[in-house]
């Protein structure tokens, strides 16, 4: 267990951070994911694929978290239309990316991060997300379109 944690914690935390945009939330989420996967490690059919299981758990937990949080936030945002977020052009490029990632839907963000940070193929991304290949293609395409809008090349 200890060796598995040490081998994968850093990568897991970075993935969690890209998916959530919040350090504390990423730590909590990654801890929950490790607890779930390590707690059932002896049930895994392919123990060599620990990172695969862990990555999928992190993605699922983050998606679930944002789904639960989303309803109330969306409604509250509509009640406070004048509290605008900082304009993207006021931020450094890294900050603009973080802000842009957070404008994506959780499933879009997960697909983009798995494709371009984890460098998974579309088929592997589909497997990691548990969705059909076509869904990944359309999700990534829409996510990229949104990011291009938020992160223009000349920015």
């Amino acid at each position: 267990m200890d060796a598995l944690y040490r081998a994968h914690a850093a990568e897991a935390l970075r993935l969690g951070y890209l998916l959530t945009g919040e350090r504390a939330l990423a730590e909590d989420l990654v801890q929950d994911a490790f607890v779930r996967v390590l707690g059932r490690f002896h049930d895994l059919r392919n123990r060599d694929a620990f990172w695969w299981y862990l990555r999928r758990t992190i993605v699922n937990l983050s998606t679930s978290y944002f789904r639960r949080r989303g309803v109330e936030r969306a409604w509250l945002a509509r009640q406070r239309p004048n509290e605008a977020a900082p304009a993207p052009h006021d931020l450094a490029e890294r900050d603009r990316l973080r802000a842009a990632l957070m404008t994506l839907r959780p499933e879009q963000r997960a697909a983009i991060v798995l494709r371009f940070y984890e460098d998974l193929s579309e088929a592997d991304t589909a497997e990691a997300l548990g969705v059909p290949l076509g869904t990944v293609k359309s999700t990534v395409s829409r996510g990229l379109e949104r990011l291009r809008h938020e992160l223009p090349e000349e920015a």
Binding site: Y5, R36, R40
Partner: peptide, 28 residues
């Protein structure tokens, strides 16, 4: 950009390992 952004995440394995592993063992 993603790899650059990911480096913002502080990684403190020594600090986070004990509680995570304790919880995992209990669950297991």
């Amino acid at each position: 950009l993603l790899h650059d952004l990911a480096t913002e995440m502080p990684v403190d394995i020594e600090g986070t390992a004990p509680r995570t592993l304790r919880r995992a063992r209990v669950r297991r």
